[in-house]
């Protein structure tokens, strides 16, 4: 197990390193002269140089990269050029929107997909199974932002039950905050579910054809008992992996859904700061999100190793 953990840890660190270099180069190399853009086109060369010097942007790129990485590792995400706000504070403010949205969306997707996918697998070859498979196939084709638009037309405009967009902060009214999250979570969750149902269905189908399920049936368990006692536990392994891989997709969905419902989450902050050339803010925030996703995958790998001895002992 120790070797397995070490290998996964090495992969985690390698992934973080590669991602950090990629993000840094992407933003710095393609972004042009930051100080010149910040000062506008009337700025003199001296002013530009002075500002670059103040922000340390005139140092060689590897030095800047190293500096950024060391500070990130110490928990210092840097600060905004213009407003001097700390990136950590900016991010923390936005997490109150983004984290509940992403996590509830994922949870809803899982809660729908596991029972529905299992049901579809048990009814394969019957009409109900085919209908569910078709619904999931259509759901996969629906762009998450269009699902958001349709739900918002139905429940916001036509029925008037929920706000079509905007945000009430938790501190003002937590009922209001939840109300502004219901439709975004629903959009995200339904689309996640459509994708996950397919995986759950094929995982359960695989398990149902295994010898140990036949054995369980032979010793007198009903189909449902066999599935619950030995089937689901084995099917959970691939499902856990897929959920880990879907986290990157989940972040993408959250980014778009925040725009559909004009929620003041991380993605709006990133877009605004990209436009304002706040390179440090963008760099650190994007890196934070990527580290989060890679960390989730790392934890999923560990969990997988704990659940299945064959994986952890494989060379």
């Amino acid at each position: 197990m120790a070797i397995y953990v070490l290998r996964k840890l090495a992969f985690f660190l390698g992934a973080v390193f590669v991602a950090s270099v990629a993000i840094f180069l992407l933003i710095r190399a393609a972004g042009g002269n930051v100080a010149a853009i910040l000062l506008g086109k009337d700025a003199t060369a001296e002013a530009i140089n002075a500002l670059s010097h103040t922000y340390g942007l005139d140092r060689p790129l590897p030095v800047q990269y190293y500096d950024w990485l060391v500070k990130m590792a110490q928990g210092d995400l840097g600060q905004s050029f213009r407003t001097k706000e700390m990136v950590s504070e900016l991010v923390t403010e936005r997490l109150g929107v983004s984290i509940p949205l992403a996590l509830s969306g994922l949870l809803l997707g899982i809660l729908i997909a596991i029972p529905v996918g299992t049901y579809a697998a048990r009814n394969v070859g019957k009409l109900s199974g085919a209908v569910l498979a078709l619904i999931s196939q259509i759901g996969i084709a629906v762009p998450v932002f269009w699902a958001g638009i349709l739900l918002s037309v139905l429940f916001g405009v036509r029925l008037g039950w929920l706000p079509t967009g905007g945000w009430t902060d938790w501190s003002q009214s937590w009922v209001g905050a939840i109300r502004s999250l219901v439709l975004p979570v629903l959009s995200l969750g339904l689309i996640m579910a459509a994708v996950l149902i397919r995986y759950v269905r094929s995982a359960v189908l695989d398990v149902m054809n295994q010898d140990y399920v036949r054995t369980a049936r032979a010793v007198g368990m009903t189909r449902t008992q066999a599935l619950l006692n030995v089937g689901l536990r084995n099917a959970s392994l691939p499902i856990v992996t897929i959920i880990g891989l879907q986290v990157a997709e989940l972040i993408g969905g959250t980014v778009i859904i925040e725009m559909v419902f004009s929620l003041p989450g991380l993605s709006r902050m990133i877009l605004a700061n990209v436009a304002a050339r706040e390179v440090i803010v963008v760099q650190s925030t994007v890196m934070l999100i990527i580290v989060f996703v890679i960390a989730v995958n790392f934890l999923v790998d560990l969990l997988y190793g704990i659940l299945d001895p064959r994986i952890r002992n494989a060379t």
Partner: peptide
């Protein structure tokens, strides 16, 4: 293979935002 694994764990939508904004 490890390179591919790393690239797969990076959320595409976020990177695309940055890419589109810089390029």
């Amino acid at each position: 293979s490890r390179g591919a694994d790393i690239m797969l764990s990076i959320p595409g939508m976020v990177t695309a935002l940055v890419l589109a904004a810089t390029l």
